[in-house]
Amino acid sequence: MTRVTDTSSASRGHGLRRDIDLLEALASDEAQTAGGLGVVRLACLVGREKTQVSRALKALAAEGIVERDPDTLEYRLGWRLFSLVARTSESRLVRVAEPLMHALSADLEETSHLCVLSDQEVLTLLSVSGHSFRVHGWEGRGVPAWQTSAGRVLLADATPDELYVRFGTTGDMPVPELWGLIQEARKQGYARVSEEFEEGLVGVSAPVRDFRGRVVAALNVSAPKNRLGGRLDEAGRTTARAAARVSALLGWEPRRAQPARTGPT
């Protein structure tokens, strides 16, 4: 009886491993670039029979783990998988980022912030100083995204049309100007501002990416201009290195360049 149970468990484990192989293939650069992969290509990538792969994909699709495009009949990662990840991503983000933020703040001797995008504002999830304690003054507080370095890196994945939808009617920041600032930040790996949000205040921010390569947060360092103003680029590069380490812990592997985007006319 024990032998039968062990065999059954081993079989289920082997089946799970084969399903994970399929999910990893659907998360590959090839699949992400193409927008999905067909059964034949997936069978080739995982080294299995086409009929076996087809049955496994149908079972995964029935649970929402993968989904099939009705036009191309190709498979991609599904809504349920992303939903499971999303439920834990914010708490994991804070947990992963906090020790690196302490190191960043100690290195620059300034307070660092972990920020996310909320509609037209940048929301601070966590603030820490270089003295091993959390600073609560900014946590939960929102500021206009277009005025901050954090907002410019958080909007790195946005298209011009998305920027118009989000900001086009505010009149506070012309979208073409904002687009230019976002592209500048993308090019140098960090954004910088000097007294644009508040007189006498400067700051730098760098993007944090998840396992898909999407910007999910920004690491920010802000300080009075008389302390940080003369070393903004140094601080920007240091912050970018810290953000890259957080991204790596979230599963991001920068194996290929980010696709170029078309600017507004």
Rank of each mutant, 00 (worst) to 15 (best):
L45Y: 04
L22D: 10
A27C: 13
A56W: 02
L26H: 10
A86D: 08
R68P: 11
R68Y: 09
R3I: 15
R18V: 14
A25I: 14
E110V: 08
V94G: 09
L100M: 03
P70K: 00
L60P: 07
S8V: 15
D119H: 00
A27K: 11
A106P: 00
E30I: 13
L23N: 04
Q120L: 07
M101I: 06
E98G: 02
V40W: 10
S54A: 05
M101R: 09
L81E: 02
A27R: 12
H102V: 03
T72M: 01
A103V: 05
S11P: 03
E49Q: 11
K50C: 08
A61G: 07
S83A: 10
G36E: 04
D6H: 14
S105W: 13
L42C: 00
I20D: 09
S118H: 14
R80A: 13
R3H: 11
H102D: 08
P70C: 07
Q52V: 08
D19Y: 07
V66P: 02
L84K: 06
A27L: 15
V4P: 00
D119A: 01
L114D: 10
R95S: 07
A31D: 08
L104C: 11
T33A: 15
S11G: 10
A103K: 04
S54L: 06
H102L: 10
D71P: 00
V96N: 01
D119E: 12
R41T: 05
A56D: 04
R18S: 14
L26E: 10
T88W: 13
D21G: 13
P70F: 06
K50T: 08
V40Q: 10
L22Q: 05
D71L: 03
D29I: 11
R3Q: 12
S28C: 04
R3N: 09
G13W: 06
A103Y: 01
V96G: 02
A31L: 13
A59T: 01
A61S: 11
H102S: 05
Q52G: 04
R18K: 14
L93G: 08
T5H: 07
V53I: 00
V4S: 04
L37P: 01
H14R: 13
R17Y: 06
L123V: 00
G38I: 03
R17A: 15
A97K: 06
T5D: 05
L108Q: 11
T124I: 04
T72S: 09
P99E: 11
Q52F: 08
A43L: 04
L126F: 09
A10K: 13
L108D: 05
T51Y: 14
Q32E: 13
L100A: 05
G36C: 09
R87K: 03
S54T: 01
